[in-house]
Amino acid sequence: MSVSIEYIPTGSPVHRLHALTKLIFALAVLTISMLLSQPLPLLLLFFSLLGIAALASVSQEILSAVKGLLKVAFFLALLQVFFYPEGTVLFAPIPSLPGLSVTDQGIIFGISMALRMMVIVTSFLLFLTTTPARSTVLSLVEYLKVPYDYAFLFITALRFIPTFLEEVRLIGQAQEARAHDFSGGGPLARLKTIFPLALPLVMISLQRAERMAMAMETRGFGLPGRTYYRTEKPGAVDIMVIVALLSAVAAAVLLRF
């Protein structure tokens, strides 16, 4: 299963929305999907997400992720179907274990559960593929008052993922070249074979963190009165989308209760 969580710059109208709007969108979809309990509305919600993915020109990535999710969704549905206790029993695979019987409500609940999971994951994937990490973090800092230091940690972590993966590869090769066998034996032996990879990785990461701290502070990190390059303000479209999203959530709440 390959799930892309990378920002894909396509310049679509969805990309042009403010990060905050898209974050509210993902959270609104999450809330609504929790409030919906029938498969049909959830299915409609799911298809409208695919429509938005098309609008954002990220369909290909989202669809490949959805394909990967189908298996997980299937198992999730199956579990719910067998373990849901309420409703009319349609079928009992093992008569002595009434807890494992399949009920009409169980089927509906299982399918809804799976669809809900798909909806939530897809909406967040949509958010991640259409929003640069930096914009997300800056809007967290500006509008949700997340301290900059934490937000910065997150950006830096993203920046270092490729470096980290390259290091894992090189260390693995360096130990293999000294005839180390990473595939050896049972689970415990397996764990032991990881040491030659994990220890240099930890050492290198610590060194790097130290050097990074030095490089950052010698460039003024930590001074009071920090400013922000390219802070984006939500526009009229953003306000409209946010109002629409909040209304949808309110409607879902009213319908439910």
Binding site: L170, A177, F195, P200, M203
Partner: peptide
């Protein structure tokens, strides 16, 4: 022998 000795020393 790799370029960076820290890729192997543990």
């Amino acid at each position: 022998v790799f370029q960076n000795p820290d890729h192997q020393i543990f």
